Amino acid sequence: MGSLYIVICDDEPAQLSWMEAAVKAWAEERRRPVCVDSCRNAEQFLFLREEKREPDLLLLDIDMPGADGMSLARRLRAEGKDMQIAFVTGLAEYALDGYDVEAASYLVKPVEEKRLYACLDKAVMRWEKEPTSLLFETAGGMARVKLTEVAYLESTAHNTWIHGRGDREPIRCITGIQRLEERLQEISGNFFRIHRSCLVNLACVARINRKEITLDTGEVLPVARGRWVALNQAYLEYYRGRVE
């Protein structure tokens, strides 16, 4: 399992500091790898997600200067972002509004540690249960695809084609395969580059040899000469992880 990425967005420095320390204490107690970032307003959060990636959980204050937390949450949902959002605020009257943006939890300040821990535990349960998705940028907008439905990615010229399992039509993505590989490595260890222009989902591989792999769809893909040893090791580690 990868690291859970949590972002805390709150304009109160003391609250922000306490929340960050509490989340790290929860992670240590639960023995769960976690990465935590913090920001003071919606603008900082939007900049942060461009620099890094979408968080798995956003702990979001509502009453902030500039764009408030509810406006930010509505914007994220309008963009198709499916991250979990938990509101952390002193404005209890906004609780019902949280349903409009599918809020995972609602914590009222001053936040009790046990309630925060319960919120984080619930977020982990949802995270483990739901297949991880990735947003792919296409010429016509954004396409959200569950990684379990991706068989392999293939680079051609300036595009990357996302090939799904079954009869699904490939999606033409305008992001380069190198950038997509970096994003995939952050959230999944299942993808391996078998040659310069192809990333394959190891969960879809039925057979491998030194020259080619066969997917569970029957499709055959070539393996670069210098990639066999690393591919064989990655394939064995993937299946050892499944058995364990």
Rank of each mutant, 00 (worst) to 15 (best):
G2H: 14
L4D: 03
V7S: 06
C9N: 08
D10H: 06
M19L: 15
V23N: 01
R30P: 00
R30G: 00
P33L: 05
D37R: 09
C39K: 04
R40P: 10
Q44M: 14
F45M: 07
L46W: 02
F47D: 14
E50T: 11
E54A: 12
L58M: 09
I62M: 03
M64I: 02
M70H: 01
M70G: 02
A73Y: 06
A78Q: 15
A78N: 15
D82L: 07
A92F: 09
G98W: 03
Y99L: 09
A103S: 09
S105I: 05
V111Y: 00
R115P: 04
E130S: 11
P131I: 08
T132N: 13
T132W: 11
L135T: 04
F136H: 01
G140W: 09
G141E: 04
V145L: 03
V145E: 07
V145T: 00
K146F: 11
L147A: 05
A151P: 12
E154R: 08
T160K: 05
T160Y: 04
I162P: 01
D167W: 01
D167N: 07
T175I: 15
T175R: 03
Q178W: 06
L180E: 01
R183H: 13
E186M: 09
I187T: 04
G189E: 05
N190F: 01
S197C: 07
C198T: 08
L199E: 01
V200M: 02
A203Y: 00
A206E: 13
I208R: 01
I208H: 05
E212P: 07
D216M: 09
P222D: 06
P222R: 01
R227Q: 15
W228D: 08
Y235E: 11
Y239C: 12
R242K: 15
E244I: 14
